[in-house]
Design a binder for these strands. Sequence first.
DNA 1: TGTTAGCACTCTCTTCTTTCGAGTGCTAAT
DNA 2: ATTAGCACTCGAAAGAAGAGAGTGCTAACA
Lengths: 360, 360
Amino acid sequence: MALSERKKKILAAVVDEYIKTAEPVSSKAIAETGSLGCSSATIRNELAELVALGYLEQPHTSAGRVPTPAGYRLYVNELMQRQKLSVEESEELNRKLNERLAVMDTAISDIGKLASQLTNYPALALTSNASVTVRRFDLIYVDANTFIIVALLSNNDVKNKYVHLPVSADRSLVQKLSTLFNASFTGITEDKITSALISATERAADDTIGLTAVIAAFCIETLSEVNSVTAYVTGENRLLSQPEFRDPDKAHKLMSYLSNGGYVFPETGAMQDVEEVRVLIGPENVAEELKDSSVIVASYDAGDNTKGLIGIVGPTRMDYSAIATKLGMLAAGLSKRLGGGEAPPEGMHNKLIIKGDDRS
Amino acid sequence: MALSERKKKILAAVVDEYIKTAEPVSSKAIAETGSLGCSSATIRNELAELVALGYLEQPHTSAGRVPTPAGYRLYVNELMQRQKLSVEESEELNRKLNERLAVMDTAISDIGKLASQLTNYPALALTSNASVTVRRFDLIYVDANTFIIVALLSNNDVKNKYVHLPVSADRSLVQKLSTLFNASFTGITEDKITSALISATERAADDTIGLTAVIAAFCIETLSEVNSVTAYVTGENRLLSQPEFRDPDKAHKLMSYLSNGGYVFPETGAMQDVEEVRVLIGPENVAEELKDSSVIVASYDAGDNTKGLIGIVGPTRMDYSAIATKLGMLAAGLSKRLGGGEAPPEGMHNKLIIKGDDRS
DNA sequence: TGTTAGCACTCTCTTCTTTCGAGTGCTAAT
DNA sequence: ATTAGCACTCGAAAGAAGAGAGTGCTAACA
């Protein structure tokens, strides 16, 4: 099973070349790179063996070789040259990230956009907040019929709602409810907000106009929204620039799958450790629609128990190395900016861990 | 210039048929519909004249006829059968709208999604708020270093910002600033917020820690964000199901144009009267990228000086009638729901006005 | 004068054949 | 073990032929 050093070199050359050209790679082309000191005939023999081992395949007898998913897997796991960005390049990229992030919001959809621009592939972004609660309520009295509910969440997010009631409420009720909600609705997760709690609060506040219910509903809605995982997809159209999606039907299928979003990432399992980049190649994806695409995902830590994923989807033929590096840096940059601040920026490319389901 | 009744019928038949099949329409096909009591030879003569007049064209000598943009224009302006939805159908559609709108947020991006689903074309949605101002400020004191700024806008939107300062501020400063901002920053548009005003406020509040600047910046940012026109594009991938976009390059060009959004609608001029549906056919569009696509736009009134546009983009061959009707109903439904409430829902399809740059 | 049948003509689309060449696999020599 | 040489394979591109859809025109007809 252990491939000879030369076989590995040849496999790597095939993958590198195929990534660049999207055309089956010939023995001659490899020989001409000059990195192996042998002729095309020798390489042909090796190539035949690599086909037998399942790392390469031939579209037809008289064509060059193309990597199989297994070939890509091996490449990603062992062969690919980690992008050793020079200090300048690394700084350059970091600077760009800073620029971009300064201009853009760090809203999750913008992060996706950034990833898509950076890689030129469709990108997905999502965050998962582990059990956010309300930390504090404020009720702003605008007029007798109108209030603003303000909730400060445990992740420092602030949500509000403008409420206009058909009947008027007096200030004392608002005051009472404010106290009661801060006493019993803070620090509890969504599932703890029972109808019993709500009606108890309503009675305690002597609320006859239903304001309690409105606030409680807002609370539930806000928490469930914040805690739910939604994926944002951007740049689907970039798929069309890839030669493997010149067939409109294929492109359409994948694009509409992506547009309905969110089903891509769950496959990568629960949110992963930060600074780990996961690669799923072709059939390693669970979803039928992704069986001949690859997914690269990086996770970041947005602090306060919130983790996020960013990733891209493309054909199996993609520059795994470059993209994994870029996503890794992006994720690290985000962790640094948003998270507890423990993630170091300099030289982070050395720490890049690339994982995946290895089937060998 | 005035076309004979029969020519009009024939033109309409060609457009109707071409919309359905996407194939050049033959004289025989028209004769066989039976709606005209004449033979294919007669129709051939008429078709030749319609070509001479510029309403139709032939891909090549021995092919059927295809409508030109001028032909579509005439069709849209005079010939097309307005969708006379039966009462049941109308109610059905209204019911669906209600359902959908109940589930979805009325957030502008969701409205676009709805339009796209309804028509199966890429949709754009945007709103323009005419000069929103802040109506009221509240500063919520969380702790000495932490505040929440809450701004109630003139369109009843509420915006907030969580502020964490490196230095602490005492309650009296917060109190003073609250009063000052409510006195001099409310009811004014973004451009009235000058640095002179800000520094005057800073001095009046005796603010040495820069809190004034933070609040003012939030104010400017919020207003400019709310007042700016942003377009949301959804369903770009639906383009790929249209036969005219089987060429990936063409599709890609248009899709990336759309993804960069926002440039489509301004062409239709300023926001239009509500309940007017505008149709722009092929070269009538200003943008080069849209020269062989058509755009249909409807506007709605979201109340409080806020108007919105929803529209779709597709090939020039599209079912103008059905789509204009649907978008019109959607816009009317939104006006009713969001706006002053003056827009009636029943029988509204009779009021549908279809406009465009008539070049005849 | 408007309409229609008939027919030759045109042009695309499909299918079939041929050619070309890139790339392989094998063999024999080193 | 490596390599030069060469016959072989197969797809892609180019050409040729046939089919058919649809037209334009002409001449007859109401």
